[in-house]
Design a protein around this nucleic acid. Structure first.
Length: 123
DNA sequence: GCTGTGACTGGGT
DNA sequence: CACCCAGCCACAG
């Protein structure tokens, strides 16, 4: 059989697709980290891919991207809005508390998405 | 096709 | 929390 079969549609969600699904599922007033999303997807080391996915995400996903921060709760991708202050305003508007001008209180707003179906990653 | 870079993380110091 | 190092994958030059 030929390997070129574009008519086939496995409909298998790719990595960035799953990232966007989780990002848009983050409830208001809550935040999550790149590593958490990557871990739920089954690849904790894929945190970089999460960032890449968000940097190349559709506009509707960008509406939720402000709820994604790094492991220290810092607005690492704040400049993607033109200025971190914009991202901070969005989070504060949802009731998120900050321990610094550009650092959220993870101990209070850290949200963990529901584990996906990933038999792999036994760490 | 190799190299550098990146919205990252974890562990050690 | 800060700095250094190593691992991870995808994309741009």
């Amino acid at each position: 059989m030929d390997a070129d079969d574009t008519s086939n549609s496995p409909a298998e969600p790719s990595f960035p697709e799953r990232v966007w699904e989780i990002v848009v599922a983050i409830p208001p007033g809550q935040v999550t980290t790149y590593g958490t999303i990557a871990a739920v997807l089954g690849n904790r080391r894929a945190a970089r891919m999460v960032g890449w996915a968000l940097s190349s995400c559709p506009e509707h996903v960008g509406e939720h991207a402000h709820r994604v921060v790094n492991r220290y709760g810092e607005l690492s991708g704040g400049w993607s809005w033109g200025h971190p202050d914009i991202m901070r305003a969005l989070l504060e508007d949802e009731g998120v508390q900050f321990v610094a001008d550009y650092q959220v209180d993870l101990d209070r707003h850290l949200w963990v998405p529901p584990l996906q179906d990933n038999p792999e990653d036994s760490e």
